[in-house]
Amino acid sequence: MAILTDIIDPRVQQAVVAGVFVAVGWVFNGYQNRKRERRRRLERMQDVQTALIAEIDHYIVTLKQFDLAASWSRIVTAMEDDMSYIPVVPSERNDTIFSALIAEIHVLPEPVIQPVVGYYNQVFAVDAIIDDLRSDLFREMDQIQRIGMYTDYIALKQEALARGEVALRALRVSTGRTVKPSSRGVALSDQS
Protein backbone atom coordinates (compact mmCIF):
# COMPACT_ATOMS: atom_id res chain seq x y z
CA MET A 1 0.00 0.00 0.00
CA ALA A 2 2.96 2.33 0.49
CA ILE A 3 3.72 2.24 -3.27
CA LEU A 4 0.14 3.17 -4.07
CA THR A 5 0.30 6.01 -1.57
CA ASP A 6 3.54 7.27 -3.21
CA ILE A 7 1.91 7.28 -6.61
CA ILE A 8 -1.05 9.20 -5.32
CA ASP A 9 1.14 11.70 -3.47
CA PRO A 10 0.65 15.09 -5.19
CA ARG A 11 4.40 15.77 -5.24
CA VAL A 12 5.02 12.55 -7.17
CA GLN A 13 2.21 13.37 -9.54
CA GLN A 14 3.70 16.85 -10.11
CA ALA A 15 7.13 15.34 -10.75
CA VAL A 16 5.70 12.83 -13.24
CA VAL A 17 3.73 15.54 -15.07
CA ALA A 18 6.79 17.81 -15.15
CA GLY A 19 8.96 14.95 -16.42
CA VAL A 20 6.48 14.08 -19.15
CA PHE A 21 6.20 17.77 -20.11
CA VAL A 22 10.00 18.14 -20.31
CA ALA A 23 10.32 14.93 -22.35
CA VAL A 24 7.59 15.97 -24.78
CA GLY A 25 9.18 19.43 -25.09
CA TRP A 26 12.57 17.89 -25.73
CA VAL A 27 11.20 15.59 -28.46
CA PHE A 28 9.19 18.42 -30.05
CA ASN A 29 12.17 20.79 -29.95
CA GLY A 30 14.36 18.14 -31.57
CA TYR A 31 11.75 17.64 -34.28
CA GLN A 32 11.57 21.39 -34.90
CA ASN A 33 15.38 21.67 -35.06
CA ARG A 34 15.62 18.80 -37.56
CA LYS A 35 12.83 20.34 -39.65
CA ARG A 36 14.58 23.74 -39.61
CA GLU A 37 17.89 22.13 -40.58
CA ARG A 38 16.24 20.25 -43.47
CA ARG A 39 14.69 23.49 -44.70
CA ARG A 40 18.05 25.31 -44.47
CA ARG A 41 19.80 22.48 -46.32
CA LEU A 42 17.16 22.52 -49.08
CA GLU A 43 17.48 26.30 -49.39
CA ARG A 44 21.27 26.02 -49.55
CA MET A 45 21.01 23.23 -52.12
CA GLN A 46 18.71 25.39 -54.27
CA ASP A 47 21.04 28.40 -53.92
CA VAL A 48 24.11 26.37 -54.94
CA GLN A 49 22.28 24.82 -57.90
CA THR A 50 20.97 28.21 -59.04
CA ALA A 51 24.48 29.67 -58.97
CA LEU A 52 25.89 26.70 -60.90
CA ILE A 53 23.10 26.93 -63.48
CA ALA A 54 23.98 30.58 -64.04
CA GLU A 55 27.69 29.89 -64.48
CA ILE A 56 27.33 26.80 -66.68
CA ASP A 57 24.57 28.36 -68.78
CA HIS A 58 26.71 31.42 -69.46
CA TYR A 59 29.57 29.34 -70.84
CA ILE A 60 27.26 27.08 -72.86
CA VAL A 61 25.53 30.09 -74.44
CA THR A 62 28.94 31.58 -75.23
CA LEU A 63 30.18 28.34 -76.84
CA LYS A 64 27.01 28.05 -78.91
CA GLN A 65 27.54 31.52 -80.35
CA PHE A 66 30.54 30.15 -82.23
CA ASP A 67 30.66 27.35 -84.74
CA LEU A 68 33.59 25.52 -83.19
CA ALA A 69 34.07 23.24 -86.20
CA ALA A 70 34.13 26.22 -88.60
CA SER A 71 36.54 28.10 -86.31
CA TRP A 72 38.80 25.06 -86.19
CA SER A 73 38.73 24.73 -89.98
CA ARG A 74 39.49 28.42 -90.52
CA ILE A 75 42.39 28.48 -88.03
CA VAL A 76 43.91 25.20 -89.20
CA THR A 77 43.73 26.36 -92.82
CA ALA A 78 45.54 29.56 -91.85
CA MET A 79 48.16 27.52 -89.96
CA GLU A 80 48.68 25.21 -92.96
CA ASP A 81 48.97 28.17 -95.36
CA ASP A 82 51.46 30.07 -93.19
CA MET A 83 53.88 27.84 -91.26
CA SER A 84 54.76 30.72 -88.95
CA TYR A 85 51.13 31.53 -88.03
CA ILE A 86 50.33 30.97 -84.37
CA PRO A 87 46.71 31.49 -83.31
CA VAL A 88 45.98 33.77 -80.41
CA VAL A 89 43.99 31.90 -77.78
CA PRO A 90 42.42 34.06 -75.07
CA SER A 91 42.47 32.91 -71.48
CA GLU A 92 39.13 31.97 -69.93
CA ARG A 93 37.65 31.84 -66.48
CA ASN A 94 34.56 29.63 -66.34
CA ASP A 95 34.76 28.12 -62.86
CA THR A 96 34.58 31.08 -60.47
CA ILE A 97 31.35 30.05 -58.77
CA PHE A 98 32.24 26.36 -58.71
CA SER A 99 35.61 27.13 -57.12
CA ALA A 100 33.92 29.27 -54.47
CA LEU A 101 31.36 26.54 -53.73
CA ILE A 102 33.56 23.44 -53.94
CA ALA A 103 33.38 22.89 -50.18
CA GLU A 104 29.60 22.75 -50.46
CA ILE A 105 29.38 20.25 -53.31
CA HIS A 106 28.06 17.71 -50.81
CA VAL A 107 24.76 19.61 -50.52
CA LEU A 108 23.92 18.76 -54.13
CA PRO A 109 21.71 15.75 -54.81
CA GLU A 110 23.66 12.67 -55.87
CA PRO A 111 22.31 12.59 -59.47
CA VAL A 112 23.60 16.16 -59.96
CA ILE A 113 27.10 15.78 -58.54
CA GLN A 114 28.47 13.48 -61.28
CA PRO A 115 27.48 15.60 -64.30
CA VAL A 116 28.48 18.86 -62.61
CA VAL A 117 31.89 17.56 -61.56
CA GLY A 118 32.38 15.99 -65.00
CA TYR A 119 31.61 19.31 -66.67
CA TYR A 120 34.00 21.26 -64.44
CA ASN A 121 36.76 18.69 -64.95
CA GLN A 122 36.34 19.37 -68.67
CA VAL A 123 36.49 23.13 -68.06
CA PHE A 124 39.74 22.59 -66.13
CA ALA A 125 41.12 20.60 -69.08
CA VAL A 126 40.24 23.49 -71.42
CA ASP A 127 41.98 25.93 -69.06
CA ALA A 128 45.07 23.71 -68.98
CA ILE A 129 45.34 23.44 -72.76
CA ILE A 130 44.83 27.20 -73.09
CA ASP A 131 47.85 27.67 -70.82
CA ASP A 132 49.78 25.29 -73.08
CA LEU A 133 48.64 27.09 -76.25
CA ARG A 134 49.85 30.38 -74.80
CA SER A 135 53.22 29.00 -73.71
CA ASP A 136 56.66 29.48 -75.23
CA LEU A 137 56.87 25.70 -75.72
CA PHE A 138 53.88 25.88 -78.09
CA ARG A 139 55.57 28.64 -80.10
CA GLU A 140 58.72 26.51 -80.42
CA MET A 141 56.85 23.46 -81.79
CA ASP A 142 56.62 22.72 -85.48
CA GLN A 143 53.36 23.63 -87.20
CA ILE A 144 52.09 20.02 -87.36
CA GLN A 145 52.37 19.73 -83.56
CA ARG A 146 50.70 23.13 -83.08
CA ILE A 147 47.84 22.09 -85.35
CA GLY A 148 47.45 18.90 -83.32
CA MET A 149 47.30 20.85 -80.06
CA TYR A 150 44.86 23.38 -81.50
CA THR A 151 42.68 20.48 -82.71
CA ASP A 152 42.75 19.03 -79.19
CA TYR A 153 41.75 22.44 -77.82
CA ILE A 154 38.67 22.63 -80.05
CA ALA A 155 37.77 19.01 -79.19
CA LEU A 156 38.00 19.82 -75.47
CA LYS A 157 35.71 22.82 -75.96
CA GLN A 158 33.20 20.68 -77.87
CA GLU A 159 33.24 18.14 -75.05
CA ALA A 160 32.79 20.96 -72.52
CA LEU A 161 29.72 22.06 -74.46
CA ALA A 162 28.26 18.55 -74.42
CA ARG A 163 29.04 17.99 -70.74
CA GLY A 164 27.70 21.41 -69.86
CA GLU A 165 24.36 20.61 -71.48
CA VAL A 166 24.18 17.35 -69.50
CA ALA A 167 25.03 19.18 -66.26
CA LEU A 168 22.45 21.90 -66.96
CA ARG A 169 19.79 19.28 -67.64
CA ALA A 170 20.57 17.51 -64.36
CA LEU A 171 20.52 20.78 -62.41
CA ARG A 172 17.27 21.91 -64.00
CA VAL A 173 15.57 18.58 -63.35
CA SER A 174 16.75 18.71 -59.75
CA THR A 175 15.48 22.26 -59.23
CA GLY A 176 12.28 21.76 -61.21
CA ARG A 177 13.21 24.51 -63.66
CA THR A 178 12.65 24.38 -67.36
CA VAL A 179 14.22 26.51 -70.05
CA LYS A 180 11.95 28.90 -71.88
CA PRO A 181 13.10 28.46 -75.48
CA SER A 182 12.10 31.94 -76.55
CA SER A 183 13.92 33.77 -73.75
CA ARG A 184 17.37 32.51 -74.72
CA GLY A 185 16.79 33.19 -78.43
CA VAL A 186 15.58 36.71 -77.73
CA ALA A 187 18.52 37.46 -75.48
CA LEU A 188 21.00 36.28 -78.09
CA SER A 189 19.34 38.08 -80.99
CA ASP A 190 19.16 41.29 -78.97
CA GLN A 191 22.93 41.20 -78.56
CA SER A 192 23.57 41.15 -82.32
Rank of each mutant, 00 (worst) to 15 (best):
Q145I: 01
V107H: 01
K64F: 06
R169H: 00
L52P: 05
M45V: 12
V20P: 01
I75P: 10
V123K: 05
M79Q: 07
D136M: 05
P111L: 02
I8P: 07
E80H: 08
R163H: 11
K180R: 14
P10T: 07
D95A: 12
D9P: 10
K35A: 00
R40M: 15
V76I: 06
S99F: 08
R163K: 14
W72L: 11
Y150V: 02
P111G: 07
D136H: 02
M79F: 07
G19K: 01
V123C: 06
R38A: 06
R41E: 05
M45R: 11
A15W: 02
V22R: 09
A51P: 03
N33Q: 08
R146P: 12
R163W: 09
G185R: 15
A162S: 05
A100K: 13
A170S: 10
V186G: 09
I102V: 14
E92A: 05
F66W: 13
K64Y: 00
K180S: 15
Y31K: 13
E159W: 06
D9G: 10
S84C: 10
A70L: 14
Y85I: 04
I75L: 01
A70T: 13
I147T: 02
S183L: 04
E37M: 00
F124P: 04
L63P: 02
L4A: 07
S99M: 12
V48G: 08
T151G: 06
A18H: 10
A18S: 06
P181F: 12
A187R: 02
I113E: 10
L52R: 04
I105L: 15
P111Q: 08
R93I: 02
H106N: 06
E80V: 09
D132Y: 15
D132C: 08
Y119K: 12
G19V: 09
M45P: 04
I56V: 09
D127I: 13
G19C: 06
D132S: 14
W72R: 10
D67Y: 13
L63K: 03
V22A: 14
A125V: 04
R134G: 09
A155C: 03
G30Q: 03
S189F: 13
I154L: 15
R163E: 11
K157C: 08
V126D: 07
D131T: 04
F28V: 08
A70K: 15
P115L: 10
F66C: 09
A103E: 11
D57M: 00
Q13V: 10
E37S: 04
L42W: 10
G25H: 05
L133Y: 03
R172Q: 05
V186A: 12
S174N: 01
G25Q: 04
V116C: 07
D136K: 00
D132L: 13
D81G: 00
V123N: 10
S73C: 11
R177M: 01
L168G: 13
D67G: 05
L161W: 14
E140M: 01
A54F: 02
R41F: 02
L42C: 02
E55N: 00
I60A: 09
A125H: 08
G176V: 12
A54T: 06
D95C: 01
M83Q: 01
A100V: 14
A70P: 09
R38S: 12
T178D: 12
V126P: 05
Y31W: 12
M1W: 02
